[in-house]
Structure formats: C-alpha cells, structure tokens
C-alpha cells in the first residue's frame, strides 16, 4: 500500500511575496509505499522542502494532486487525518517545541486531536520511551542538547501515532553526536515500528542508510533508486553539486584511471574488501 502518492504536482510561490520566484515544483510524480525509508537529496533551492510541505497539506499543489493513503490533501474536512498520518519534524530544534516541559510538549499533538487524557498519558510515555527520552520527561526543554530536543520533537510527532514521518533536515544544526542519536532513532522507528520515513538531508552518510534515494534538481526528480544505484552515478551527482560518499568516490577515481573496481561500492568495509582482493 502507498502512504504518499504525488501525481504530476506543480507549485510556485506567490509572485508578490517572492518576486523572482520561478517554478519550484515542475511535475513531480512520486509514490512512497508503506514502511519504506526514503532519503530526499538536492542542493538548497531545488524544491525538496517545498515538496515535503505537500505531504502533510502545509502546501497544496497548484497543479496535480497529492494523496495520503488515498485521501487527497486538498480535502479540508480530512486535514487533521492527513497531518496525523504524516507527521513532520523541522530543522531547527529550538523552534518546534511548544511547552517548557518535555512531556507537556509531547502531549501537544494528541491534545489537539482531542484524545482522551488517559490515552494521551500512555502515548506520551510510549513515544518518549521510543526515542529514549523517558528519563527526561519532566525536564525543561530548553536545557536539553540539540540532539535531545530533536528526539523530543520526534516523540511529539510519534504521539499522534503517524504512519509516516517527514523530516526536513533534522540533523543540519546538530553536532556529530546529536546527528548519530537522531539517525539511530529514525532507523529504529523505521525498522521496529514499520514507520515510513522521508528524510531530507545533505549528509550522504545518512542517505546511505535509506532503502531508496531520490535526488531533485530544479523542481524535478533527476535520480531515483537504491543508494547503491544512485551513488554510482558519481558524475550526475557532481553536476548537481552533491557529495558522494568517500568510498564510492575513491572507487570512481580508481575506475577512471583504469582499475577494475565495481562502481557501486558504498561503505568503508566494502571498499576495503574490494581493494584488498586486488592488492593481496
């Protein structure tokens, strides 16, 4: 079953607010099946954040349609069904926590949905346990580290019991430790709870963890496939000014110099295996 189905969507921002705006989304077709972990790449301004905002009806397409589990996002009566099915985590951890106390913040979503108090309590505790922040439930949100704040934000979305979580550069403002914490949490939710993940990122080592990588440029999808097939297109990625994982890039350079190494090497260990087979 597909969680997200975008059909030929087109979008551009209002001419008055953004005088120099061009078409931001230019006929995007994308379906995301349930349980998939998709990484969405592209340089700033390629339209990936705008696309993400279409997945929970923050924006409505000017042309084409987006369906969330067969509900069209322009159906106003079902808006909260869409938003509780597809939760969204934003980049800046400081600007998405509403309450001073961690557990009160996590309760915010279910409270808005009118869930019964006992059920909210249960959901909040479960969500905080799932992101490993249960011990911090009565702490002040502003005193947490960036990675912890971001995990609380994920818990806040989880408490609405979504089937899909869209994360818009959730690690961009974090240090390496915070980044690791958040990525581990995302992978665990995908693996253990079967939650569909759409992750927007600039970090290739994060994209490598996904089931599928989609590369966007200029409002269009330019590459779509497994990390292995996408990252082997080193030249296309370079044209789009994106990074390539270092092991892949090393093998690419060696291939170009005439060494017979495969082009779809992704990880350090694979690269070491390939090279030591040739050298030893």
């Amino acid at each position: 079953m597909n969680i997200i189905r975008a059909e030929q969507i087109r979008f551009q921002y209002d001419g008055e607010e953004h005088p120099e705006s061009a078409v931001v989304l230019d006929g995007i077709d994308l379906t995301v099946p349930k349980g998939q972990f998709v990484a969405l790449l592209g340089h700033n301004g390629c339209g990936k954040s705008t696309l993400a905002k279409h997945f929970n009806a923050l924006l409505l397409p000017l042309g084409g349609r987006v369906y969330i589990k067969d509900i069209p996002t322009d159906d106003e009566d079902k808006r909260y069904d869409v938003r509780s099915t597809v939760g969204m985590v934003l980049q800046n951890p400081d600007n998405q926590l509403v309450s001073t106390i961690v557990e009160e913040d996590v309760a915010f979503g279910p409270e808005n949905l009118g869930v019964a108090p006992d059920e909210i309590r249960k959901r909040v505790d479960d969500a905080l346990r799932a992101v490993g922040m249960y011990e911090y439930r009565d702490h002040a949100a502003h005193k947490l580290s960036g990675g912890q704040k971001q995990r609380v934000a994920i818990a806040g979305v989880l408490a609405m019991q979504p089937e899909c979580i869209v994360l818009d550069e959730p690690t961009a403002m974090l240090d390496p430790r915070g980044r690791r914490e958040v990525m581990e949490t995302i992978c665990r939710l995908n693996r253990e709870q079967g939650i569909t993940i759409v992750l927007i990122t600039h970090y290739m080592e994060e994209a490598v963890l996904a089931d599928r990588v989609v590369v966007m440029d200029d409002g269009k999808i330019v590459l779509d496939g497994t990390p292995r097939t996408v990252f082997s297109q080193v030249d296309t990625l370079r044209q789009n000014e994106l990074d390539v994982p270092q092991p892949t890039e090393l093998c690419h350079l060696l291939r170009r110099a005439g060494v017979a190494v495969p082009e779809d090497v992704l990880t350090v260990d694979e690269c070491v295996d390939v090279l030591s087979a040739l050298l030893l």
Partner: peptide
C-alpha cells in the same frame, strides 16, 4: 517556524482540545 510546527501537530485553537493532565 513555531506556527508551522504547531500546524503540523494539528493545532487549531482551543475547540475540541483535551488535556493530558
């Protein structure tokens, strides 16, 4: 940004809202 985040979490004013505590 906070307004966007609140909208993502289905905030729509006080009507029909419940409280955990």
């Amino acid at each position: 940004e906070l307004a966007t985040a609140m909208e993502c979490r289905c905030y729509h004013g006080g009507d029909g809202r419940t409280r955990m505590k």
